[in-house]
């Protein structure tokens, strides 16, 4: 039963990911990506990482993809994607390289990954049972003790990103002066 659910999830994830690649329409591609992320969240749930799964749904499938869809809507990219002649041959080379990459990694996984013993999963269960804490509590404790420096650096990164996004999205004329929105029509 578990194997059936897991196989279904595996197939769905790959199909939706292929949809991201193969849909010509950007909106369909984005919706396909949302479903891929939901499938990955379900996979996290199977691995008992509940907090990460819900953050995946809220932040990735929710927030980030809404920004993507919003920008797609804002730019209104109508024209179909036509491939110029100089890119057609490159596609085959790119595909060959990507599949070479996939087979090398798959071979490495087959050789080096050990899946018949899963002491870690049992250890994780044991840890959770004896500490009596939820996963969120343990993650939070780890985040403000061992990982406190990356945590603070992430806040700085997000601040820089917010300021950068505002600076990039501002309108300027040729001389670099700010354009006052009242004096011109909105066209974009």
């Amino acid at each position: 039963m578990f194997l059936l659910i897991y196989s279904l999830l595996f197939a769905l994830t790959v199909i939706f990911a292929l949809g991201v690649l193969l849909f010509e329409n950007t909106v369909k591609s984005a919706v396909s990506l949302i479903f891929t992320m939901l499938c990955i969240a379900a996979n996290y749930l199977l691995m008992r990482q509940e907090f990460v799964a819900f953050i995946q749904i809220i932040v990735y499938a929710g927030a980030i993809m809404v920004v993507f869809l919003f920008v797609i809507m804002l730019l209104n990219l109508r024209e179909p994607e036509r491939t110029p002649w100089y890119l057609r041959n490159m596609r085959y080379w790119a595909g060959a390289l990507a599949f070479l990459f996939f087979f090398v990694l798959a071979w490495a996984i087959q050789v080096f990954a050990v899946s018949d013993v899963a002491p870690g999963a049992a250890a994780l269960e044991e840890l959770r049972r004896e500490s009596g804490q939820a996963e969120v509590t343990q993650l939070a404790t780890l985040m403000v003790t061992q990982y406190v420096v990356p945590f603070l650096l992430t806040s700085v990164l997000l601040l820089v990103a917010v300021i950068g996004a505002i600076v990039m999205a501002r309108r300027k004329d040729e001389d670099g002066h700010e354009i006052v929105l009242d004096e011109e029509e909105e066209d974009a």
Binding site: V59, P119, G120, L124, L139, L157, L158, A165, M168, A169
Partner: peptide, 30 residues
């Protein structure tokens, strides 16, 4: 993380998500 019984995997995922959000914000503004 699940295989090795560590909790750090989840933390790294959270950091990656923060970086992805920052990347999406700045990139789409560009």
């Amino acid at each position: 993380a699940f295989q090795l019984g560590l909790l750090s995997g989840g933390i790294l995922v959270l950091f990656i998500m923060a970086v992805a959000a920052a990347e999406a914000g700045v990139g789409l503004a560009i």
